[in-house]
Nucleic acid binder design. Structure first.
Lengths: 218, 218
DNA sequence: TAGATTGTTAATCGATTAACAATC
DNA sequence: TAGATTGTTAATCGATTAACAATC
C-alpha cells in the first residue's frame, strides 16, 4: 500500500512489483550457487520461490534474455545480471535514525554478508547514546541528521524511531538529500514525490492475520 | 509476494489485499480519536493515509455500511467495527522463535500499547539464553517448540532466527499447531496450505530501492 | 535430429477508480 | 430543504497466466 511515486528512473515502464520481486530471485540464485547448482529452469526456480514459471519468465523479459531454450538459466550469470540491474554490485551507504532495540538489531544484522549496504551514519535522540561508536560509526544527535547526511552524500535512510518522531526525522533525512526510505514507524510519512518509501510493518501484518484465525482465544 | 492460501475463513470472498489495508485504517482512526476528532469523511481519511477515497469506501463496503451520507464516519465506531472484523478486540498469544538482537527488539517493542498481542513463549537455540525470564516468560530450547506451542494453544508464531534454521523452526511451530507466521528470515518457507505466512523483508526492500537510485555511489 | 525450455503474445483475472443515485 | 458524502455499479487499468512458436 502507498506505493512509490518514482521519478529517478526513466526505464520504459517496468512495474514496481516486478522490481520488488527481483531480490528474491537474487537470493534464491545465490542459494543455488552455494549448493553447487549451476543451472535452473524457470520451472525449478518457480517451485523454489513459490510462484509460477510464467511469472519468472515474464519478469525477466522486461530486462532482456537470460536463458537458453532447452537448458534454462545459468545461476551465476542470471544472479550477476539481476544484481547489476538492482545496482547491488557496489556498496551503498545507509543512514540509520534511531538506535533503540530496533536500531540496534538493524545495525547488528549480519544475515547477508557480504552485503551491498553499510550503515554509514547513526542518529539518536537519547543523549546517553551520543558519541558511542558502532563499527566505527559515531552516534550523533538527531539535530545533526540533515547536515551529516548531506556531508556524506547518503541516499538511503532507515527510520527506526518511535512513531511520534518519525515524521520529523523523515523531514530531516529528506532535507539532507535522502532519496529512499525504509520506514519501520507505524505512521504514514509525508514526503516529496521523488522520495521512495517502503514500509516495514510487522504489527500491521499481525493485525491482518488474526482476521483469518479462529475466534475466541483467551 | 507468495500470497497466502487461506483456508480458515469462509467469508464470501474478500481480497487479502483489502484485509491487509484494514490495520492502517484502524491506526489512523485511533490517531484521529487521540486528536479529539470524532468524525471523518472518506476524503479526509484518504488524504491522511495516502490512498483514494473511493478505495476506502470500496474496502469498507465488503463488510457493511459504516458511514452517514453527508456526514462521514464516526472515528470511534468505525475503529471499533474494523477492530472487531480483524478480531483485535481480544488478546492473542504469540510464540517468538529466536532471541537474538531481532528477537530482543520484537519482545521489547512497546510502540503499540495497549496491544492485542502478547509474547507468551520464547525459544532460542543458544544454551546461554535458556531459562532467562523476559516479562515473566522463560526462554526455552528450540527443541521445546512443538510441545510448548501445543500446550499453550498458541496460533501465531514469529520467526526471528537465522535463515539456516528458519525452515526447521517453522516446521516445529506448525507441528505445535501454529496457523499464522510472521517470517523475518530471508528464506521462502515451505508450509502447509492452511498456514498463513507474511514475510517481513527489509533487506529485500533495500535491494529493490537501489534500482531507482543514481548510479555510482562509492 | 528430438526434446526441452525459453521469450513473448494474447487471454484472463483481479484490483482500482470514476461516477452517480441514494440518503443523511 | 440544500449540501455533502456515502455505498455501489460499471469502466478502466494493470498484473498474472496460459499457450506456443522460436530455438538451443
Amino acid at each position: 500500500m502507498i506505493e512509490p511515486t518514482v521519478s529517478r528512473n526513466f526505464e520504459p515502464d517496468i512495474p514496481d512489483i516486478v522490481i520488488r520481486r527481483l531480490p528474491i530471485y537474487v537470493r534464491t540464485l545465490r542459494a543455488l550457487q552455494e549448493s553447487g547448482i549451476a543451472n535452473v529452469s524457470s520451472d525449478q526456480l518457480a517451485e523454489l520461490i513459490g510462484v509460477t514459471a510464467a511469472q519468472i519468465r515474464r519478469d525477466l523479459s522486461y530486462f532482456g534474455k537470460f536463458g537458453k531454450q532447452g537448458k534454462g538459466y545459468d545461476t551465476f550469470h542470471l544472479e550477476q545480471a539481476i544484481s547489476q540491474i538492482l545496482k547491488l554490485d557496489h556498496k551503498w551507504d545507509v543512514a540509520l535514525a534511531g538506535f533503540g532495540s530496533l536500531g540496534h538489531a538493524i545495525a547488528h544484522y549480519r544475515g547477508f554478508e557480504p552485503s551491498s549496504f553499510r550503515i554509514a551514519a547513526i542518529f539518536d535522540r537519547n543523549p546517553e547514546q551520543l558519541g558511542r561508536q558502532i563499527d566505527g560509526v559515531t552516534i550523533m544527535s538527531d539535530r545533526c541528521i540533515a547536515g551529516e547526511v548531506a556531508r556524506l552524500g547518503i541516499q538511503i535512510g532507515i527510520i527506526a524511531v518511535p512513531a511520534a518522531n518519525a515524521q520529523d526525522v523523515a523531514a530531516a533525512l529528506v532535507e539532507g538529500g535522502i532519496h529512499a526510505l525504509i520506514n519501520y514507524a507505524p505512521v504514514v510519512l509525508k514526503t516529496p514525490p521523488n522520495v521512495l518509501v517502503r514500509e516495514i510493518d510487522p504489527i500491521g501484518a499481525l493485525q491482518s492475520m488474526t482476521y483469518y484465525l479462529e475466534g475466541e482465544h483467551e
